[in-house]
């Protein structure tokens, strides 16, 4: 009981003491921060371990958005490079004279220990530190889910800090010139193309090739590959596997194999229905018809066989 009683007096004393100490350092600190902020051309603070403690582990009344990254080329961190301009976009959208939020960047080279402290295993990462009297556990921004875009990032910042501000992308006037140039170039090139490739554009055959090949791509599942980005092929029991079992999924290579088979079948149909009329030699005709028919049946059986791999319950097969 005695101890508790004595504590009663001690707490206000202690807090008074603390307040004094921090009040003193506060001014210094903010000056230091301003100095750091002024160092970089954009609205962010380039941190190292020392400044990290100063900015984040001391009592403070501001939010900190920290980008933990590794820009050294030896890490080959592609996302780090892509994320940086987006992060800077968000940082620059914030009014630099407003002291409620600071943006900071910590490179792995400058702060290996900090990375250890925060248990950051992978870069890049964006962390939010809320105002507090000491060390806080940061909130991590979910990069894999939200992507590298500035629009999503700014939502995160707004949510965490509770301050509304809008993303202002720097207007890039060269872009307009660029687009204007492209439009002019396009018009000129269309003019040229029409002049020189009139035959091709007006030609029925070129349109036919275009249409038919796109149709071929669609029916052999390239759209699925384009949307889902499956692995090219898989491995099972140590062997390379070209066909994945299952109806709603496929490897990228499957589409290519299927496309070839479909093209072969389609050509044999085409030969039998159209080209066969033009063959005048009887022997040639006989041989080609048989060859084409054989190709047709083999490819058809092949596709039935492959389909059996996809759907194990499929009961039909032709040659093998």
């Amino acid at each position: 009981m005695k101890i508790i009683n004595s504590l009663k007096y001690f707490i206000p004393l202690f807090s008074l003491f603390c307040w004094n100490v921090f009040a003193l350092s506060k001014k210094e600190k903010s000056e230091k921060i301003e100095e750091l902020l002024a160092k970089s051309s954009d609205n962010f603070i380039n941190l190292n371990e020392k400044y990290y403690d100063l900015l984040i582990n001391t009592p403070r009344d501001y939010h900190t958005i920290l980008l933990a990254t590794a820009t050294n080329p030896q890490f080959k961190c592609e996302p780090c490079r892509e994320l940086l301009p987006e992060f800077l976009n968000v940082a620059n959208s914030w009014d630099p004279n407003d002291k409620r939020v600071y943006f900071a960047i910590l490179d792995y080279q400058n702060g290996k220990n900090v990375f250890k402290q925060l248990k950051i295993q992978n870069v890049p990462n964006i962390l939010h530190f809320r105002p507090s009297d000491g060390v806080v556990k940061p909130d991590f921004y979910d990069l894999p889910r939200n992507g590298l875009g500035a629009e999503e990032l700014i939502q995160f910042v707004i949510k965490k800090t509770g301050v509304e501000f809008e993303l202002q992308r720097p207007t890039d006037y060269t872009q307009y010139i660029y687009y204007g140039f492209i439009v002019v170039a396009l018009i000129i090139s269309i003019k040229i193309v029409i002049q020189y490739f009139k035959e091709i554009i007006v030609n029925k055959r070129s349109w036919m090739i275009l249409t038919v090949s796109i149709i071929f791509l669609m029916i052999s599942g390239f759209m699925w590959v384009h949307i889902r980005h499956p692995p090219n092929s898989g491995v099972s029991h140590g062997n390379v596997e070209f066909f994945i079992s299952g109806f709603q999924q496929q490897y990228a290579v499957e589409s290519q194999i299927i496309l070839i088979i479909y093209i072969l079948i389609a050509f044999s149909f085409l030969y039998l229905s159209d080209k066969v009329q033009k063959v005048k030699n009887a022997h040639l005709l006989r041989i080609t018809v048989y060859v084409v028919l054989a190709i047709l049946l083999v490819c058809f059986s092949l596709i039935l066989r492959i389909f059996f791999i996809k759907s194990q319950a499929y009961p039909f097969k032709l040659l093998f």
């Binding site: 055959r205 036919m208 149709i215 029916i219 699925w224 109806f247 709603q248 299927i258 389609a266 159209d274």
Partner: peptide, 25 residues
């Protein structure tokens, strides 16, 4: 749509389809 769905729903008609388009051209 993955390719098995095309084959499942149309079977041998799938490779005939482009040939028909060829005739239309």
């Amino acid at each position: 749509t993955a390719w098995p769905s095309f084959f499942f729903d149309l079977h041998i008609l799938v490779p005939m389809f482009p040939v028909g388009v060829y005739f239309a051209f």
